[in-house]
């Protein structure tokens, strides 16, 4: 949907006529946005995973101290595991 409006508003010819500085500008912008987006997607993934594990009932909209601690631990243990796995795989090689 938004894809089509993009190509409608900005023509191919316009894009080809961009000067080098503008291209560099956009490349930089994309790089920054891309890494921000990776962080965002990780947070989506962690929230999805840790919410399932840590939150058992939703009658209270506030997080309890225990739930908050569980979420925090969940992220950190996941990252510990990730690091451990990467190291383990490196040792295999």
């Amino acid at each position: 949907m938004s894809q089509s409006t993009t190509s409608a508003n900005i023509s191919q010819a316009d894009l080809q006529n961009l000067d080098d500085n503008s291209k560099k500008d956009i490349m930089n912008f994309l790089e920054v946005e891309n890494s921000k987006q990776k962080v965002q997607m990780s947070i989506h993934q962690f929230t999805n995973m840790c919410f399932k594990q840590c939150i058992t009932n939703a009658t209270n909209p506030e997080l309890s101290a225990g739930e908050e601690q569980c979420l925090n631990n969940c992220v950190n243990r996941f990252l510990d595991t990730n690091i451990r796995i990467v190291k383990g795989l490196q040792n295999i090689q």
Binding site: I43, T47, F51, I55, P61, E62, L63, E67
Partner: peptide, 8 residues
């Protein structure tokens, strides 16, 4: 609660 979890 989910939004709070997201922020946390």
């Amino acid at each position: 609660k989910y939004m709070r979890s997201w922020n946390s």
